[in-house]
Nucleic acid binder design. Structure first.
Lengths: 127, 127
DNA sequence: ATGGTCCTTCCAGCTTGTGGAAGGTCAAGG
DNA sequence: CCTTGACCTTCCACAAGCTGGAAGGACCAT
């Protein structure tokens, strides 16, 4: 398979696939003309990557997940630990974002939003 | 005031303050020796920036907020509109992050996390 | 004079791609 | 056989928002 075909099948743009190749997440073979040739296994890895990235795992974590995936002697506890760390980070982000949201919503609530210059939002920022 | 002092007072590291200078968010005067000299007004802007950034406003939005802040003829509706757009973006992020969290938590839940290699998390990613 | 702590600029890197330019390759149609 | 268009390649630059480090002055106390 060529890059655009595997792109369609994996749901990743060719640019991203080349990038994943550059950083060693995949190692497709090369044709005599220099074109990348993708096997079913490469496609599989790319689809795996797309889903892991969609869950918010970092590229480094994806690397580890792929390694675990290909390690027949893995312990599921290792995978679970990785996922738990990631979940903790997501929870922290949710926390921070939620705090921002509350503050911001309060400020918006208190602002008249009319033609006058007086604004509690700016007043708070300049506090 | 020198950069380290204004750094302490504003809560921003000197590196960040230099960066804000580079991108034109502040324009401190210069001493004959080339050192930046910060006025009360510069400090004020920096503190404003720190709080706006803490609320998640982008640097570009901070620029607009500062412009509005210094514009005596502003309408509070302009500030409110800016804040509302930002709130919408935060809500979208919360939505996406929440979806990730649910999926990830389900997967973690379903994984035994023992010595065996069998793992629903990997199975889902490889689906 | 020396040492330690400031200050300056500039360059590089982080993360995860995206956009574009320059140039080689391939397949189809005239 | 030649041209055209759609591929493919590499490389460079940019995005946000800093952060770290190196090299070189400046200032202050001893």
């Amino acid at each position: 398979m060529n890059i655009s075909e595997v792109g369609k099948l994996s749901g990743l743009p060719p640019k991203t696939i080349r990038f994943y190749d550059d950083i060693g997440l995949i190692q497709p073979k090369r044709d005599t003309n220099g074109y990348r040739i993708f096997s079913e296994s490469d496609l599989h890895r790319l689809a795996f990557l797309r889903r892991a990235r969609a869950l918010g795992f970092s590229v480094q974590e994806c690397r580890q997940l792929l390694a675990l995936y290909h390690d027949e002697t893995r312990a599921s506890s290792d995978v679970k630990a990785l996922a738990r760390e990631h979940l903790a980070r997501i929870d922290q982000q949710l926390e921070e974002l939620g705090q921002m949201r509350r503050t911001l919503a309060d400020l918006i609530e208190s602002c008249a939003g009319d033609n006058r210059p007086d604004c509690p939002i700016l007043r708070d920022l300049a506090r």
